[in-house]
Each structure stands twice: as structure tokens, then as C-alpha cells.
Nucleic acid binder design. Structure first.
Lengths: 111, 111
DNA sequence: CTCATTGTCAACCATTCGGTTGAATATCGT
DNA sequence: ACGATATTCAACCGAATGGTTGACAATGAG
């Protein structure tokens, strides 16, 4: 799963990781701070953070024995770009289809 | 993975499924039409489509023995909403932080 | 120096995932 | 009624995933 898009979507498919992202949107935090709310070992949370980091959604900076985790908003934006592109494409197609249907209706009304 | 957000992100974490979405953004298609370009069995593609359908990203309508697959742009939009929300939240935080730093620099310049 | 704190690494386990093959079902065209 | 076409269902396989426990490394504090 080398592709960054693969990794990003996969990373966000886990509710714990989405929750971590939501938390990090409010500000940087250490691993144990992030792990505190969860009923799971700190190792598990550390793994989740690694998954987010591998996807580029998050970066770590070592401050002494702790690591500050930082949300990379740019990586999030690259995700929305992909999704939005195809949603928009489909929308345009629907609109064109509507126009055709309206025209058809018009020509049938006035023969 | 009952959560629709879980299912949607997971569905799009696979490159084949993202490709199917890209194709479907151009218009509805049958299973075999969608399967044609891939070097994999039609059953595999059918499975991928089931995953997309389970996530609500796609719907099937049975026309005789074929099924027409249709992209649900609304479901895509729900995804972007989630991502965009937290990207925006982080952005706002950065901006506030910048303001604080600028103010600090100012007060240090003119004591 | 010692020790508690913070975090990672490694091995393991159960479950899920992406793919295959093979058989079954449903519908169209003749 | 029959055969071809389109799709699904089911069982199976290897790899990846989310979690655990236990040991290790690095740093700060007393």
C-alpha cells in the first residue's frame, strides 16, 4: 500500500484513528496524552499513530523522551481534493442529463 | 465496520475501487463493463462493487440479468464534509497561533 | 547514580481482505 | 424449450490488520 491515497483512506477507515485526527485538529499532543481516553494499551495507540504518520496525515517531533504529534492539514486537503473531484464530475453529468430531459419534454409538448 | 464513515473510507482505500468510482463518475455501467479493463475475475470486481454498495457509495438497479451500477455523489460529499471539517479546524488554529506569534514579536520589538 | 516516565520494538493471535475457482441462478434471444 | 449471457454465492488461501503482552531504549528528576 505504497500509494499515499491508499494509505490515507485506509488510515481514516478506523474510528480510533479518525478520533485521533479530530483530537489533533484542536492542537498537538504527546502519545500518552492521546492514548489516555482509550480503553486500549499505549502500544496500540502508538501503532495507530504510526499508521497515520505513514499516510503523511501526522508528523512526530521528538521533544526529549516524548514525541509531539502534529496534524498535517495539507494531507487532509489532498484527500478532499480527490473525493470532491469525482463528486463534482458526477454532478455535472446529472445536470447535463437533466437539461436533455427538459429539452425532450419541450419538444414533445410542442409538435 | 457498521459505521458508514468507516465503510466509505475503507472502500476508497483500495485503488481498484477508487478507479471504479472514477469510471462511474462518467456514467452508470454494468458489472461486466466495469470489469472489462481489469486483469482480475468478474467475481472479484463484483465483490469490489459490493463493498462500494455496502458503504452507500454506489447503488445497483437490476435491468433484466444485468445490474446497472450508479455512483452516489451525495455519499462522496458526506466524506469530504468530514475531512474538510478537521482540515479547517486545524487551519483556524494555525492562523490564531500565527497571530499570537506576530503579537509577541511586536511587543518584543518596542519595549 | 538511580529510577520512574515515555515511547518503541517484537512476537503472537484472531479476524478481515483481496483474490481465486467452481457451481448456481436468472433472464434474454432463438 | 434451450442455450448463451450476466451476475452472484460459497469455499478456500495467503497477506494484512488491530489488538495483546513483554522486553528494551532514552531521557528527565530526585
Amino acid at each position: 500500500m505504497t500509494d499515499p491515497l491508499d494509505a490515507s483512506f485506509a488510515a481514516l477507515s478506523d474510528p480510533t484513528r479518525r478520533d485521533l485526527v479530530a483530537r489533533l485538529a484542536l492542537g498537538d499532543a504527546t502519545v500518552s496524552e492521546l492514548a489516555a481516553p482509550y480503553d486500549m494499551t499505549i502500544q496500540a495507540v502508538s501503532k495507530h499513530l504510526n499508521v497515520l504518520a505513514a499516510a503523511g496525515l501526522v508528523t512526530k517531533s521528538a521533544q526529549a523522551q516524548r514525541r509531539l504529534i502534529h496534524l498535517e492539514a495539507d494531507a487532509l486537503r489532498r484527500l478532499t481534493d480527490w473525493v470532491q473531484h469525482y463528486a463534482q464530475l458526477a454532478d455535472q453529468r446529472y445536470r447535463r442529463l437533466d437539461e436533455v430531459l427538459v429539452q425532450l419534454a419541450d419538444t414533445e409538448e410542442s409538435p
